[in-house]
Design a protein around this nucleic acid. Sequence first.
DNA 1: CTGAAAGCGCTTACAG
DNA 2: CTGAAAGCGCTTACAG
Lengths: 336, 336
Amino acid sequence: MNIGEIAKRAGVSRSTVSYALSGKRPVSTATARRINEVIDQLGYRPNASARALAEGRTRTLSLVIPPAGRRLTDVQLGFVASVVEAAATYDLDVLLSPSGGDHDRSFERIVTGRRVDGVILMEILLEDARVARLEQAALPFVTIGHVERPGASWWVDVDYEALIRRCVHHLADLGHEHVVLVSRSDELVAAGYGPALRATAGFLDVAEQRGLTGHVVCCADEPGAGQACFEEIRRNRPEVTALVTINEAALPGLQRALHHSGLHVPRDLSITGVIAKRLAEDFSPPLTAADVPAEEMARLAVDLLVERIADPDATSRHALLEPVVSLRSSTGARPR
Amino acid sequence: MNIGEIAKRAGVSRSTVSYALSGKRPVSTATARRINEVIDQLGYRPNASARALAEGRTRTLSLVIPPAGRRLTDVQLGFVASVVEAAATYDLDVLLSPSGGDHDRSFERIVTGRRVDGVILMEILLEDARVARLEQAALPFVTIGHVERPGASWWVDVDYEALIRRCVHHLADLGHEHVVLVSRSDELVAAGYGPALRATAGFLDVAEQRGLTGHVVCCADEPGAGQACFEEIRRNRPEVTALVTINEAALPGLQRALHHSGLHVPRDLSITGVIAKRLAEDFSPPLTAADVPAEEMARLAVDLLVERIADPDATSRHALLEPVVSLRSSTGARPR
DNA sequence: CTGAAAGCGCTTACAG
DNA sequence: CTGAAAGCGCTTACAG
């Protein structure tokens, strides 16, 4: 069943059916009613491929997710669901595309095949081949995260540096003198992962400014590493009384190690950082932390992308979010 | 840039370029080489919409995720990523589609708009309107989960009943006499959610058979509910020495409640059930549990769907997986 | 081994 | 307010 069939049954031309559907040309009330009756009766809906070909747009976005090797963190997953939700409000579909590893074919299919109207790129690196590729292909895109000098790019990010600065100030206010930042994995940092680099910068700067001893440790994105990392800190730096973390995936291991150590939080040790709300609340005790607003970021990313698609030559826009630090139960005065 | 441009530059007809690309008709080596040179040089790739329209297939699958109200569990999320991976090996793209709530538009767009070649439906209910809709539209689909009498349907599922039976036998062997099944939410059970119903049936049957006192409690899919649920069990049924759970989302709350209670697992209480491997391993102590093989299920679902798309009239197939129970550290002899 | 042409199902100037 | 026709960029019988 196609538009011709509808036209025939409604006794009008195909163009009239098309215009009745799109509203791009006035159609007499009587005709419109007749057309709509036939459409409802037959449950007709335009073929998406034909429409995309004729219109030159697919009404589809691509969400490029990080390489599957790295498991998605809770924040990232919430983000995926939220992007789908936000896109749905624009009647846009979302193509989930893997990248990295042996997924170049998938990414190229999206980019060159004109498969989508725009792309949202998660977890970009400071130097990112995919960004260059999208620019070259002149495909509208928005990144989650931003590079050092963003230039004319469109992005949404959380201000990791500012948030970590706040966390360290908070710990300094509580009298802590020896603090550690639990960062992301070595490889990620080496690859130039912005949030980790900026968190480190903010951490070290405020530590110095407030006269604290601050150390940064990289930790692989998995519970086991979190546990090992904690044990190493206890062994090598027993003077440390507070942890700042941006590593969500390691949290369960941290919890386990904490449990085994018999340490009480926050009496013996304070913990804070940038953590998804759900994870912070599920920790025992609930973590004082900056909640990454994944839903808001998703919403903003889709809004920006829709705007950029509508006007590819518009001046670039971005949003740098600075969520509040929620005081829960994991930070307290330095033990003496 | 389109196929005509390539044809012109290579000095051949458009059909020859098309055949060189698809391999559906022999092309002389010299011509093929010339065509490929031009294609590589210009980075040409066929327009996906045009191809879809001409071929009558989109090379795209839809993965319908559960209503966003219910947060995705860890297993479900791993499943999404794995489906994308598996589809990529067939050079298929995946459209992520929300369903339920106010997402009927999204679902209808997929179904009627011929947007995809096939659909994978997660989390089906025993009576599921989406299943009926897909059948009516004659769109190939595979469900994760199966209904009571599956008839000629295509599906992949985990044998919850068999797994829970094994768990209860294991507890009975360890001497436990009073056990509780922590099921999913009231609403889900009321809606006819297969895994919960089948787990309950298996649980009660083996409990009776082995002479145990078995109770089933429903628990909302969130940590807070898990905590409340545990506390209620301790209060109302202090004689209970073992828990069987199929509720992953409630696990963090269970962990917290356990911590507060001061109970030692497995000395004072045994815990087992059907749980994603990652969650089971991250629990403290690691849970003896049947690991839901999300990756394998995803792979199988895609394989079956590809098969069904290729031959819509083929006899239906399905896969009922029965993963092993991994012995970890959360079950032990009944305390006396 | 290759080409000219029809057709997939839409949208949208062009005409009236 | 409406229709006839061209065109989007492919694939694939039909011919040679």
